[in-house]
């Protein structure tokens, strides 16, 4: 069983399971699927500052969402230890060739160590991807009112127009980052 679960899961197993998060949260306690509001709750809990955006009872409103986010981290611990898979991610040959063209040589792990490592934190590429990219994820998700889970999965499941526009934006931004920014910084 563990051996079976340790193999990479195909899209037609993982995708539907992710989709089930939407009804599961509604049926459990009338909650709407989304992860990025946890960022708002953490700010509200730790450093609210002077913004009204963080002036609310985070325990009352956000505790369930913080539990969901913490659980996601714990799930990563379990999947990365008990269900670990030592093989590199089986990406397509075309992607491998493109990334090799950018100068990547190490395709092990979940993210390239040549970019995502503590040692790279002071380098331009590390600063732009980890610090700059992270900032944009947090700023953009809350500006848009949701991330991949809240807009792409929940919002599109409910055929909501705001989410459709947000997801078009997600893709537009991702394409610009992939095809214009990454070649500049690599």
């Amino acid at each position: 069983m563990i051996e079976l679960l340790s193999q990479p899961w195909p899209w037609y197993v993982g995708g539907p399971l992710i989709g089930l998060m939407v009804p599961a949260l509604l049926l459990l306690d009338n909650r709407t699927f989304g992860i990025s509001s946890s960022f708002q709750h953490i700010c509200a809990a730790v450093v609210p500052g002077k913004s009204t955006y963080f002036a609310y009872d985070w325990k009352q409103t956000g505790k369930w969402n913080l539990a969901l986010a913490l659980g996601t981290l714990l799930g990563g611990v379990i999947a990365g230890t008990l269900l670990a898979d030592p093989e590199p991610i089986a990406i397509s040959e075309a992607t491998r060739a493109d990334l090799a063209g950018l100068g990547l040589t190490d395709f092990n792990g979940l993210a390239p160590v040549e970019v995502f490592s503590w040692a790279n934190l002071g380098s331009p590429i590390g600063l732009i991807t980890m610090v700059g990219g992270g900032f944009l994820v947090g700023f953009g998700a809350r500006y848009a009112g949701g991330c991949t889970s809240g807009h792409a999965i929940f919002g599109l499941s409910d055929f909501q127009l705001p989410s459709l526009i947000a997801v078009v934006g997600f893709f537009a931004g991702g394409l610009v980052a992939t095809h214009f920014l990454l070649p500049l910084i690599f």
Binding site: V137, G140, A144, G174
Partner: peptide
Amino acid sequence: VGGTLFGLGWGLTGACPG
């Protein structure tokens, strides 16, 4: 605008919030 900024970050970090 927020969606596009988020997408730029997603493309750079390869990771969304979850």
